[in-house]
Amino acid sequence: MFRSRSTIGVTTLLLAVVLSGCVAESATTPSEAPTSATPTSSAAADPSPTPEASETTAGIALPDDCAQIYSPAMLSSLEQEGLPLNDPAVTMLATQNAALLGDLETLPTLRCSWGAPGSVGITTNVTVVDAAQAAAIETELAEGGFGCGDQGGGTVCSIEQRGVSLDDVPYVRGETHALRGNVWVATSWLNHPLDGYVEDILATLGA
């Protein structure tokens, strides 16, 4: 798997966790603990590609659906864990960085989530970018405290946070971003290590 440096601790990028709904998307300060509110369905939970999803640059073409971004083995593994794919009640986003969220709203992207409202979840956006956009994303991640490193012909940046919710439930969460060729794989996770997950997506996409 990628062996990127990780930044441990609470940062302004990683905000409060909603254990009953995978994450909280509202802005909080680093000192605030996660709440237990359950999120409601929102447009962000729509797994369909954006209207520009059919556009491509030199490199990969954006897949039509989430099943196409995983190898059969990874897809089977996630399904066997009992994590539902694209539960509409999950509003967990692939990043809590405001600038990067703006990119995900405007660039060709496909959102995929695993899990139901609860204490375990993964959300990934596969996004088509050009060289200038990729460079800007990498700069934003590095300046935001992510540990970044060159891996497999691309860049992987990651960050991790451990804490305790208001209900005294320990949690671990983080983000991993991979940039290779014309693809950006942004993943946010809660209480679910990403062993081999991002690598599998890149290999399946041929990035």
Rank of each mutant, 00 (worst) to 15 (best):
A43W: 02
A44R: 12
A44P: 00
A45S: 12
D46G: 10
S48R: 15
P49T: 14
E52W: 06
E52R: 14
E55R: 15
E55Y: 00
T56N: 05
T56V: 07
T56P: 00
A58I: 08
A58Q: 12
G59I: 05
I60G: 02
A61R: 11
P63V: 05
D64G: 11
D65F: 04
C66G: 09
I69F: 11
Y70F: 15
Y70H: 14
S71D: 06
L75S: 15
L75E: 12
L75H: 14
S76L: 07
L78N: 11
L78W: 13
E81R: 10
G82N: 04
G82Q: 01
L83V: 01
D87G: 10
P88V: 13
A89T: 07
V90G: 13
V90R: 12
V90Q: 14
T91Q: 06
M92K: 07
A94C: 05
A94G: 07
Q96R: 07
N97T: 09
N97A: 07
N97Q: 15
A99K: 14
A99R: 12
A99Q: 14
L100E: 08
L100F: 03
L101V: 10
L101N: 14
L104H: 03
E105A: 05
E105C: 03
E105V: 02
E105Q: 06
E105G: 03
E105K: 05
E105R: 05
P108W: 09
P108R: 02
L110D: 10
L110E: 05
R111Y: 04
C112Y: 01
C112A: 02
C112W: 01
S113P: 06
S113M: 05
W114C: 00
G115W: 12
G115F: 11
A116M: 08
G118S: 01
G118E: 01
S119V: 08
S119G: 13
S119D: 15
V120M: 10
G121D: 04
G121M: 04
T123S: 15
T124K: 11
V128D: 04
V128M: 02
A132I: 08
A134N: 04
A135C: 07
A136N: 13
A136T: 15
I137D: 09
E138M: 00
T139Y: 06
T139D: 09
T139H: 12
E140F: 00
E140Q: 11
E143N: 13
G145Y: 10
F146L: 14
F146D: 11
F146W: 05
G147L: 11
G147I: 07
G149E: 12
D150Q: 14
Q151Y: 13
Q151R: 13
